[in-house]
């Protein structure tokens, strides 16, 4: 497995898209702290990067990489290597590269300029989201054989979690405003990893106005510490469930 992830990491490291993405993230991470002296504001700006830009790139790039290396996977699968090892190698390679870029571009500046609770929360949420979206990307790619369709579907997944879901949730809350909807809203919040990460980070900052109704419900229900634990737990579930499903499909799939 390490051999395979190592080779994937080496391959990705020279990839132009990865380099471009790395430079973009470095500019965001270091640039925001250069122009924003209030560290909490900087954290909130970076939050947008890890909630929207990073999941999008992770999804698209991981999916694209899987499709583009299918022939190579075929070659590796002809060697005495277990499918399991191959899949773990691909997942580990991709998530290592994304995590490294994330740590260098956002991790280091946050630790240098704002080593606070909200800073650490941001790093934890961002790191977990990488695993969530790498797993989702692989889940989509192993199920959809056609590249164009797979990438389209990945885009749809991203826009669903990034905007559409929130819109639907808001609509739901307006429609049923007169009923006690706290619990259903809480349950529905768990169905969106981006929402979980957002609530988790914002609840650590002073900017609770940004929490929104679902965040307030969440905060109210769990309290600070339990809320954090529940959020981390749910993000882990969000990473492991697609991972397990993709794995199950990959080992039984016609390559």
């Amino acid at each position: 497995m390490f051999n395979i992830s190592k080779i994937i990491v080496q391959d990705l490291w020279k990839n132009k898209a990865v380099i471009a993405y790395g430079i973009l993230m470095l500019t965001f991470g270091w640039g925001i702290f250069a122009i924003e002296y209030q560290s909490e504001k900087a954290i909130l700006s970076l939050l947008r990067v890890i909630l929207f830009v990073q999941p999008l790139i992770t999804l698209l790039f991981a999916g694209m990489y899987y499709y583009n290396s299918q022939e190579f996977l075929l070659l590796l699968a002809a060697q005495p290597i277990k499918r399991k090892t191959l899949f773990l190698g691909v997942f580990a390679g991709l998530s290592t590269v994304f995590t490294l870029i994330f740590l260098l571009s956002i991790g280091v500046p946050v630790l240098v300029f704002s080593p606070t609770v909200e800073g650490l929360a941001l790093l934890l949420a961002g790191g977990l989201l990488i695993f969530v979206f790498t797993a989702i990307a692989l889940l989509v790619s192993v199920h959809v054989n056609d590249k164009a369709r797979g990438m389209g579907f990945a885009l749809l997944v991203w826009s669903f979690f990034a905007f559409i879901y929130d819109g639907l949730l808001l609509l739901f809350m307006y429609q049923f405003a007169e009923y006690p909807i706290e619990r259903p809203v809480l349950g529905l919040t768990f169905l969106n990893p981006i929402d979980i990460a957002r609530i988790f980070v914002i609840s650590k900052t002073e900017a609770s106005a940004l929490l929104g109704l679902s965040g307030a419900v969440f905060q109210n229900f769990f309290g600070a510490l339990q809320g954090a634990i529940a959020a981390i737990f749910m993000l882990l579930v969000w990473a492991s469930l697609p991972f397990a499903l993709a794995y199950r499909k990959f080992v039984r799939k016609d390559l």
Binding site: D11, E71, L74, Q79, P80, R83
Partner: peptide, 22 residues
Amino acid sequence: KGPDYRRELGYMPQISRFPAQM
């Protein structure tokens, strides 16, 4: 039952595509 039998197998696919940067 397992991949070990492939030790004795050499395979040349119809189209080979390798990692481009390698």
